[in-house]
């Protein structure tokens, strides 16, 4: 199942980092798990990928990965986009581990800004890349102050911020990065995952590890832990609404979707953000269709990739995406960045 399995780069230590660096990250990870939601400072040395491009998540993955792991890397839900490809290549080159696009087959999933649609198991670990680990940065610029606020569990200014949002706009304007309270103690920034994914943190089977390389912070949400998005009794947290919309590739109506604009027809199209899940659904639907009829009625007018495509080399695979996928990526970026604007 592996792409580039057993191809090891000989000039570096296993998983690139030297053992001292790994040990430091490992010690900090254990403290992060023991104090759910607390941001543990760590050294975050230089890597061959610039800070702000997933180095926090990358260092966590490097510190925990072993030769027997099966790795999946996603960027905004997609296995084929540039950040995921770069990080996967670096990890494969320095560890030789097997990789997969299938959420169920992976033992470690490193992700940027999404949690896979399929429920993850207890033998899996999700590593999230975090740009801004501090949820209180919305209301307080000083790191010394926010640390004090966390120490005293003083989140009043965050509550006021949310309240003022509702008064001003009739809605809490935070889309991605929705502040959530872990274990009824620490407020976390769950990284820029959409609101859609926030409930997946609560009482999960899986261990979630968060790494912010530029900001040098590690935190964690252990399995079976309360992770509650901030909400008011009379103004409840809600997720994105995709009512009446379905994915043009797989027909799903129950996933987080990206919006695309078809310039030839002027229509808005929607496509699953989780490409691995979307591909799996397409395969299942083609198997069913073959049993009764030819799959000519597929919205894209072509047969979805075969099962082998799941583990096909990355270059091959990205070609099998719909032609509009580049625009989709660009659009998604705009939407997400817009939500993040402070």
């Amino acid at each position: 199942m592996g792409v580039n399995q057993n191809r090891k780069h000989r000039g570096y230590n296993f998983a690139f980092l030297d053992e001292n660096t790994k040990r430091e990250i490992r010690r900090k990870l254990l403290k992060a798990v023991a104090i759910p939601g607390y941001q543990v400072p760590f050294a975050s040395p230089e890597l061959p990928i610039a800070r702000g491009w997933g180095t926090g998540g990358l260092q966590i993955t490097m510190a925990i990965i072993g030769p027997g792991d099966v790795l999946k890397v996603i960027d905004q839900g997609c296995d084929g986009s540039v950040n995921a490809v770069n990080i996967r290549k670096l990890l494969v080159k320095t560890t030789g581990v097997a990789t997969t696009f299938d959420t169920n087959a992976a033992s470690i999933i490193q992700t940027r800004h999404r949690i896979p649609e399929e429920a993850m198991r207890q033998d899996q670990i999700l590593v999230l890349q975090v740009p801004i680990p501090e949820p209180l940065r919305y209301v307080e610029a000083s790191e010394a102050k926010t640390r004090e606020m966390h120490g005293e569990m003083d989140y009043s200014r965050m509550w006021v911020y949310l309240y003022e949002n509702i008064v001003q706009y009739g809605e809490i304007t935070i889309g991605a990065r929705y502040p959530s309270l872990v274990n009824r103690r620490y407020l976390i920034d769950p990284s820029p995952i959409p609101r859609w994914d926030v409930p997946k943190l609560n009482q999960a089977e899986t261990l979630y590890l968060f790494g912010a390389g530029r900001e040098k912070r590690i935190y964690a949400v252990p399995p079976h832990t309360l992770a509650e998005p901030l909400e008011f009794e009379d103004f409840r947290f809600r997720v994105e609404d995709f009512t009446g919309r379905s994915c043009i590739r797989c027909g799903a109506t129950d996933t987080y979707m990206n919006e695309m604009y078809d310039s030839s027809s002027g229509r808005k199209l929607f496509v699953c953000s989780d490409s691995g899940y979307c591909d799996r659904r397409r395969e299942q639907s083609v198997t069913q269709n073959l049993a009764c009829a030819e799959p000519t009625g597929h919205p894209l007018g072509r047969v979805p990739p075969k099962a082998e495509a799941l583990v096909a080399p990355i270059q091959e695979r990205s070609r099998s995406y719909p032609t509009a996928s580049k625009e989709a990526g660009a659009l998604e970026q705009v939407v997400i960045e817009g939500k993040e604007a402070r």
Binding site: F14, R23, R26, V33, I64, G66, P67, Q122, P222, P223
Partner: peptide, 19 residues
């Protein structure tokens, strides 16, 4: 083995600490 044995021990440790 500082590289591989410690990695194996660590993963068990992380699993035990998380659960």
């Amino acid at each position: 083995d500082q590289v591989f044995t410690s990695q194996q021990i660590y993963r068990l440790l992380l699993d035990a600490m998380a659960r």
